[in-house]
Amino acid sequence: MTTLPVTPEQVWTALAAVPDPEIPVVSVTDMGMVRDVTVDGGRVSVTFTPTFSGCPALHVIRDSIGEAVRALGVQDVEVRSTLTPPWTTDWIQEDARERLRQYGIAPPAPAGDSPLITLDPEPTRCPRCGSLNVRMTGSFGPTLCKRLYVCDACKEPFEGFKSV
Results as ranks from 00 to 15, higher is better:
residue 160 G to E: 10
residue 81 S to Q: 09
residue 80 R to W: 05
residue 160 G to W: 08
residue 122 E to F: 12
residue 151 C to P: 04
residue 77 V to T: 07
residue 58 L to I: 15
residue 5 P to R: 00
residue 150 V to A: 13
residue 76 D to K: 04
residue 6 V to K: 00
residue 20 D to C: 01
residue 82 T to V: 06
residue 50 P to Q: 01
residue 132 L to M: 14
residue 4 L to D: 01
residue 53 S to M: 13
residue 162 K to V: 05
residue 145 C to V: 05
residue 3 T to I: 03
residue 153 A to T: 12
residue 146 K to V: 07
residue 39 V to R: 05
residue 55 C to N: 02
residue 68 A to M: 03
residue 126 C to M: 10
residue 159 E to S: 11
residue 34 V to K: 08
residue 32 G to M: 00
residue 72 L to C: 06
residue 97 R to G: 10
residue 93 Q to N: 11
residue 128 R to H: 15
residue 6 V to D: 06
residue 23 I to E: 01
residue 122 E to L: 15
residue 69 V to S: 06
residue 61 I to N: 00
residue 152 D to F: 05
residue 114 S to Y: 10
residue 107 P to T: 09
residue 79 V to H: 02
residue 43 R to K: 14
residue 101 R to H: 10
residue 68 A to S: 06
residue 135 R to Q: 15
residue 32 G to D: 01
residue 81 S to A: 14
residue 150 V to G: 07
residue 71 A to K: 05
residue 59 H to M: 13
residue 86 P to M: 09
residue 15 L to F: 08
residue 23 I to P: 02
residue 125 R to N: 12
residue 126 C to H: 08
residue 49 T to F: 04
residue 37 V to A: 07
residue 19 P to I: 00
residue 134 V to W: 08
residue 105 I to M: 14
residue 49 T to L: 03
residue 139 S to T: 13
residue 133 N to I: 11
residue 147 R to V: 01
residue 20 D to S: 03
residue 73 G to L: 04
residue 41 G to P: 08
residue 54 G to Y: 02
residue 66 G to H: 02
residue 115 P to H: 10
residue 56 P to V: 11
residue 133 N to E: 15
residue 57 A to H: 06
residue 24 P to R: 11
residue 50 P to N: 04
residue 97 R to P: 07
residue 133 N to Y: 13
residue 22 E to H: 11
residue 98 E to M: 11
residue 76 D to N: 05
residue 91 W to K: 00
residue 8 P to I: 00
residue 90 D to G: 06
residue 31 M to L: 15
residue 140 F to A: 11
residue 148 L to T: 07
residue 139 S to C: 10
residue 31 M to P: 04
residue 51 T to Y: 01
residue 135 R to P: 05
residue 49 T to K: 02
residue 89 T to Y: 05
residue 27 S to V: 12
residue 16 A to G: 15
residue 154 C to W: 02
residue 23 I to N: 02
residue 104 G to Y: 10
residue 21 P to Q: 09
residue 35 R to T: 09
residue 54 G to V: 07
residue 83 L to G: 00
residue 109 A to E: 15
residue 39 V to C: 12
residue 35 R to Q: 14
residue 43 R to E: 09
residue 57 A to T: 08
residue 86 P to V: 03
residue 59 H to N: 14
residue 163 S to E: 13
residue 102 Q to T: 14
residue 157 P to I: 00
residue 21 P to L: 06
residue 17 A to R: 15
residue 61 I to L: 00
residue 119 L to Y: 13
residue 47 T to Q: 12
residue 21 P to D: 10
residue 93 Q to A: 15
residue 62 R to D: 15
residue 94 E to K: 11
residue 123 P to C: 11
residue 111 A to M: 12
residue 143 T to D: 05
residue 85 P to I: 07
residue 34 V to S: 07
residue 139 S to H: 13
residue 41 G to C: 09
residue 47 T to W: 09
residue 78 E to L: 08
residue 144 L to P: 12
residue 134 V to P: 07
residue 62 R to T: 15
residue 142 P to K: 11
residue 86 P to T: 01
residue 3 T to H: 03
residue 98 E to D: 15
residue 19 P to N: 10
residue 3 T to P: 03
residue 54 G to N: 06
residue 1 M to A: 01
residue 67 E to I: 13
residue 44 V to H: 07
residue 160 G to T: 08
residue 151 C to W: 06
residue 31 M to Y: 06
residue 108 P to V: 09
residue 72 L to M: 02
residue 79 V to Q: 02
residue 111 A to Q: 14
residue 38 T to S: 13
residue 117 I to K: 12
residue 84 T to M: 11
residue 103 Y to S: 10
